[in-house]
Design a protein around this nucleic acid. Structure first.
Lengths: 152, 152
DNA sequence: CCGAGATCGATAGTCATTCTCATTTTTGGA
DNA sequence: TCCAAAAATGAGAATGACTATCGATCTCGG
């Protein structure tokens, strides 16, 4: 099916994903590989229409289904904003911890990282909160909402 | 319509909301007041079904429509999670700046605040990012995703 | 090479949210 | 106070992102 991949998945990443899927009794099929390649090539959180446009060989129904499978396996993360469509990107442990700039005008989402010190301080403050509330923290999410340079 | 309000809106808050709505050429009608009262009484972000259950006199279609109006006027904030329903709460400038604990199990959302120092540090780090990216920041959003004490 | 089981993909649902429109309410002028 | 124009309401229909279905296709172990 995949003749010309959008991006090449390095061996290590490929193995990590194969392993994650195996733990959910799922295979890293061509369709799922094409999805990951499209997300990798996109370089930012993508909506399903964007993914389908990036690789027209993908079927919509399979894209929806496989993105659910990939999310359950921890390969991708689903990002939901006020935009009509949800977005997907590679999970943080396959890339690196980061946050999102969300454009309230066009809906576009891009990544950014906090410098290490700020991230550490934030983490510490969050741990205190969690301890005080009896909440078991799985992850923290930090978004900047505003207007991107394109829309300005 | 509103015989027995769920919560009483203090004069000052009432005037603020009336003013915000007026700027959008909208009125602070009974139905809209009942919505605000329900959110005030709820004390945490509420889904529309929760709001309708809290005040059974409200019509679903009007609740949806008026919550859109109230959001456009800056009176309430719409919070979207992975849950089926969106949630609404009073806008921060009518209450105070805070963040959210999102339970990945039951979908419940509750508020928490960072201590002033941590919030200041975060703010400073975020301003640097914004300056570096040409992104015009309107707000920042910080969520803790995990499992609440009820679900644990 | 074969067959059981997983995956695919076209299509038909589902359901939160939005739209429509006739009815009711509100407002400002006479 | 009365009236008409404008706004708001609410019941129901429509929309559209997403999910479920199911026969066809692919995959892997034997």
């Amino acid at each position: 099916m995949s003749i010309e991949p959008l991006a090449t998945i390095e061996t290590e990443l490929d193995e990590q994903i194969t392993d994650l899927l195996r733990r959910s009794d799922q295979r890293f099929t061509k369709g799922r590989r094409a999805l990951v390649e499209a997300l990798l090539a996109g370089g930012q959180p993508m909506t399903i229409p964007q993914v389908l446009e990036a690789d027209t060989r993908l079927a919509q129904s399979s894209a929806y289904r496989n993105l659910v499978v990939l999310e359950a396996a921890g390969v991708v993360t689903r990002i939901v904003t006020n935009d009509d469509f949800a977005r997907y990107e590679l999970a943080e442990h396959l890339t690196h911890h980061h946050h999102h700039l969300i454009c309230s005008s066009c809906g576009d989402v891009t990544d950014f990282a906090l410098d290490d010190q700020a991230e550490d301080e934030l983490d510490e403050a969050l741990h205190k909160i969690a301890a005080a509330t009896g909440f078991t923290v799985e992850a923290h999410r930090l978004d900047l909402v505003g207007v991107c340079s394109d829309c300005d």
